[in-house]
Simulated assay, not measured.
Amino acid sequence: MKKFNVLVMGYLLLMTIGVFAQQTSKNLSKIESDSLLIAYSKTTNIVFPFAIKSVDKGSPDILVQKAKGIENILQIKAAQKGFLQTNLTVVTADAKLYSFVLNYDEESPQLNLSLNKTKSEGQEIYFSDENINDEDVQEYSKLAFYDKKKLRGEKERQYDIDFSLNGIFIRDEVMYYRIKVTNISKINYDIDQLRFFIRDTKKVKRTASQEIEITPIYILNNVVKIEGEAENTFVFALPKFTIPEKKFLSIQLMEKNGGRHVELYVKNKKLVQVTVLPKL
């Protein structure tokens, strides 16, 4: 009798799992992915119908950024020639998810794409709506450059390249990040990118992690090369932001046609050590 009860219970359990699986499959709808060909030496531009809110890439072998000052254009290119197939997920302001499978094609990449609108025809490009005076931003950037107060502890040295964040300043809705790059080597350092991301806490390479790029409003001393045994101090003006728990600010410095890449990881407790610039 006991054996019979066990068999009955097992049968009922299997029936329950089967019914649940059928109900779950009915509730799920598949989101199709679009195939996208990108290159190392060319940039692919995608125009979305709404502002981009988050971007999730499946591999560090691709580079992604929003077009400067424009909220609904995404720019994509390969960071590694011949990368393995990967994916990209984008969420827009209308809470719609877009999925792309990315493949490498140096000869014939897709360069300019516009996604179908889900609303009435209207504005094609959406600019950030912060009311920021460009002239003021430039003047405050100079104040941040010459300010004597220094932030300590945010420094990284690799390949004879010193990369340090030595000042964070704020005025109104703009933050100013003072960054010093010192080339100790005798070989010139050609800058490919110096970019800011809010990221999840460190992940193992090649796993997907959510990241949001912060695009500078203005850059003071924006040189493209650090000569051998020389230095440069930049000031990056960025929209005001703070960082949630379990996230950090990543500041990436990447060498053009080289491998001397350096990265800083800055937590929120450091970002709040900010100096208020005097009003002009």
Rank of each mutant, 00 (worst) to 15 (best):
M15I: 15
E107S: 12
V19C: 15
T275H: 09
E213Q: 12
K68Q: 15
L264Y: 03
A51R: 03
D192K: 09
L97D: 07
D147S: 14
N257G: 05
V55D: 00
S128W: 03
Q23H: 15
E124W: 12
Y104N: 02
K119I: 05
L238I: 05
E213K: 05
N87I: 01
F241R: 06
D147V: 04
T233A: 10
E173K: 15
S120W: 05
N87D: 11
L280M: 13
K68I: 07
D200S: 07
Q193G: 08
K119P: 01
L194K: 10
L63Q: 07
K81Y: 01
S54P: 01
E211T: 05
Y126D: 02
K142T: 07
K186G: 08
R152K: 11
N87R: 04
R152N: 11
T242V: 08
Q193V: 13
E106K: 01
K240V: 13
H261G: 08
L74R: 01
A67D: 12
F248L: 08
K68E: 14
L7E: 14
S141N: 11
E32W: 04
P216G: 06
D94H: 04
L194D: 07
K202P: 04
T44E: 07
E106Q: 06
N103W: 00
E130D: 15
R157I: 13
T182Q: 06
V101L: 12
A93I: 02
V64I: 13
E173M: 12
D190S: 11
K247H: 09
V64S: 03
F234G: 07
V6L: 15
K66P: 00
V6P: 06
S99K: 10
K186L: 11
V262W: 00
N268D: 13
R152W: 04
M254N: 11
M15P: 09
N222D: 15
T118W: 10
P216E: 03
T215E: 11
K205A: 13
G18E: 12
E71T: 01
K57R: 11
P109A: 08
S185H: 04
S41C: 02
R157N: 14
F20L: 14
K203T: 06
G153S: 03
M1L: 10
L12F: 13
L111M: 14
N232I: 05
D105K: 02
Q158C: 09
K68N: 15
D61W: 01
K3L: 14
T118R: 13
D129R: 14
P239V: 06
S35R: 11
A51D: 06
N222W: 05
N232G: 06
T118N: 14
V64D: 02
T43G: 08
E263S: 14
K240P: 06
E227R: 08
S25R: 15
R206H: 12
T43I: 14
L280G: 13
V204L: 10
Y189T: 02
S120F: 09
L280N: 13
Q252S: 15
Y126G: 02
V90R: 00
K205V: 12
K202M: 12
R260Q: 07
N188M: 08
Y146I: 14
I251F: 00
K30T: 09
E135H: 07
N72R: 00
D56Q: 07
N268C: 05
E255L: 04
E124H: 11
S41V: 01
L115P: 00
T215I: 10
H261P: 06
G258P: 04
I76R: 01
S250M: 11
L277V: 05
